[in-house]
């Protein structure tokens, strides 16, 4: 966690989940991507002007526990519903990025009684093609430079200077990479059941996608949107897998009217 907001922990079935809160207003549950780059990104300050932005680290990310029994995104999403209950959150807007988008979609497929709106940004989670179709780039068999080129419209933006990080920050980077693999290795980046459950999502939903995303392509995003009743789909030009970081203004101009 960046320490910009208030840090606390809540329990989900005995597992400690770390939470950061910034700003005040209606609750906005912001589910970070697997790298948690959002915690350092400027767009959250903009959201914190009108919302209380709640940033939980899923089990195994940040400083949150990861007991051995937690093995997939289904588990993570139940734990996030626990977090909402523990904080007595009502009328919540959920915005999820990448892996966080997948967790958000799983949550909404299970229980929307305290969710008012759902936003998925370049999310993983479903299989839309056949067994031989590569729906999502295989980031674990690809050369790191190819992954960077696919993830960013401008790969320079993805470079991180690990030499400037302390051991706690490096431990979080390493844990996040490990936990991402633990939950998303197989089936790769999707829950085979989710596709058939998305019809249950009965709140206004917006999918926002970077038009240059080559990890999860815009075509994948459009197919994902079609699985959620009434969902809208919107592209951010000139951005890759993280449009909120590469093109924050364009991203906010799409997001803000939807969550206002």
């Amino acid at each position: 966690m960046s320490g910009r907001g208030q840090i606390s922990t809540v329990k989900s079935g005995g597992v400690s989940i770390e939470i950061e809160r910034r700003g005040s207003g209606r609750p906005l549950l912001l589910l970070c991507g697997e790298e948690q780059l959002e915690l350092e990104a400027g767009f959250i300050d903009e959201l914190a002007k009108n919302f209380e932005v709640i940033l939980p680290s899923p089990a195994g990310f940040g400083h949150s526990d990861r007991p051995d029994w937690v093995s997939n995104v289904d588990d993570l999403s139940y734990m996030m519903l626990d977090v909402m209950d523990a904080l007595s959150l009502k009328d919540v807007t959920i915005v999820g990025f990448s892996l966080g988008g997948w967790i958000a979609a799983e949550m909404a497929s299970k229980n929307t009684s305290n969710i008012s709106r759902l936003v998925l940004v370049d999310a993983y989670g479903v299989k839309v093609g056949g067994p031989f179709d590569r729906d999502i780039m295989d980031i674990w068999t690809s050369h790191p430079s190819a992954v960077a080129a696919a993830k960013w419209a401008d790969a320079e933006k993805g470079k991180r200077d690990f030499s400037q990080m302390n051991d706690d920050q490096l431990t979080i980077v390493a844990r996040n990479m490990e936990s991402f693999a633990r939950f998303c290795w197989d089936p790769y980046m999707h829950n085979p059941k989710l596709r058939q459950r998305l019809h249950r999502v009965n709140v206004p939903t917006l999918l926002i996608w970077g038009d240059k995303d080559a990890i999860t392509s815009p075509a994948y995003g459009e197919a994902y949107a079609k699985l959620i009743p009434g969902a809208k789909f919107s592209l951010v030009p000139g951005a890759g897998h993280y449009p909120h970081i590469e093109k924050p203004d364009a991203f906010l101009s799409v997001l803000k009217p939807f969550i206002a």
Binding site: T141, S142, P144, L170, A174, M177, E178
Partner: peptide
């Protein structure tokens, strides 16, 4: 061997990977 095959995430403990990042 290409680099992505040498150390898949979680194959070695987190403290090894902290050292790898350093």
């Amino acid at each position: 061997t290409e680099p992505q095959y040498r150390n898949p995430p979680g194959y070695v403990p987190v403290d090894f990977n902290v050292n790898a990042l350093k």
